[in-house]
Design a protein around this nucleic acid. Sequence first.
DNA 1: CGAATAGTGTCTGTGAGACAGTATTCT
DNA 2: AGAATACTGTCTCACAGACACTATTCG
Lengths: 226, 226
Amino acid sequence: MRHEEPRPILTVDVILFTVQDGELRAALQRREMPPFAGELALIGGYVHISEDANTLATAARVLKEKAGLEGLFLEQLMTFSGPDRDPRGWSASVAYYALVPATKLSLALPHDLVLVSVDRIEKLPFDHNTIVATAVQRLRNKGAYSSLPAYLLPPTFTLPQLRNIYAEVLGVELNDSAFRRKIDELRLIEPVPGQFSKVSARPAKLYRLRSSALREFDRKLRMDRI
Amino acid sequence: MRHEEPRPILTVDVILFTVQDGELRAALQRREMPPFAGELALIGGYVHISEDANTLATAARVLKEKAGLEGLFLEQLMTFSGPDRDPRGWSASVAYYALVPATKLSLALPHDLVLVSVDRIEKLPFDHNTIVATAVQRLRNKGAYSSLPAYLLPPTFTLPQLRNIYAEVLGVELNDSAFRRKIDELRLIEPVPGQFSKVSARPAKLYRLRSSALREFDRKLRMDRI
DNA sequence: CGAATAGTGTCTGTGAGACAGTATTCT
DNA sequence: AGAATACTGTCTCACAGACACTATTCG
């Protein structure tokens, strides 16, 4: 019997993504407490068994308490574990990733949050570099066959904006007419009647997601031959 | 500060899949210890922080100790958590799924393991019904665009066997010539020179996976319109 | 008017389903 | 020979990329 073994530490980490200035960026926060106090790391925290219904609730609470953000797309990534990832001892961290439109973020960006391009992230404490890399991979992969990138846009958006956000997430250029055809077929979005965006040369129709739920396709949007 | 809060319980559960008699089945085991002693449940156990390098190692150890199986395809599914899923208190279970060829299993099926069709699983303790349902969904989904179903076959197999295992995992019939074309294009497999299977009317060429790693495609094998 | 961006129409190559037809073994 | 299963060839339709073309606004 090994009932005497201490229990592992259980934490939650959140990778908060946004697209800003045409770049996919992740939010990092300067740690207040040890270990690694003062260093930039993922937003995270302990599971509070007295108040959290599950680790998803922990992630949502941590996002609210530490970044002041609510109502975001939030999904479990995977769990990272081991004896050495945290100096306090054998630990497991359930990682979540969240998507926030840059517009929502710019209203009130918390002072201690830094947005860093995912291609320019320095060495982070714990195994946070691995976690971020895994999250980026998941986002790029899932972005190619789901409505996921749309959660990086405000509730209403134009077709060029949608195409650009997909292109930025996937890191490729997208054929405009093929993209329109595909999005049309999939019936992902619907026009907002009578509304036009006027930020560019010619006003563009405004659309919104037809359903707030994440939807997946059966083919990838961009099918680069391997 | 909440340092006084007790830590959550951390366990690992494994959904062991096989295809037997043309059915996708999951392994269940009668529990020796409370809670729910004597009931059928998923194979699982505590993380042993003194010996497990991470929860993947826990899953592999549990599979070996409780089912006598090693060297299987084994991948993390997701983590399930909450205050009520385990009567012992707030707990998190990192779920893994494993694939085993029926041939390997029939050599020495542990006495206390039961294989149940995933369509006929009764009420299980904990939240194990949810875990199994999630695993089946993942297997069906990922099976459609990866070499995953091949891990349900022995190291060498024929093309009809491969087609059947995909069809059984996906729950659909597959067009034979389209399947051959696709598998050929993807270069997933290579012939084993001079080897033939003689179980059916006409001997069939034997193949093996070209790489032991899981490979994904950019299109689903079967594209049922939604 | 021309620049810039939004949106449409059409040609073409490729890939997948359907299915007929051929090959090889067994009884 | 005929049944059963393995394998191949071909026709056709649908879909995605390419790209030219039209539309609408602004300076």
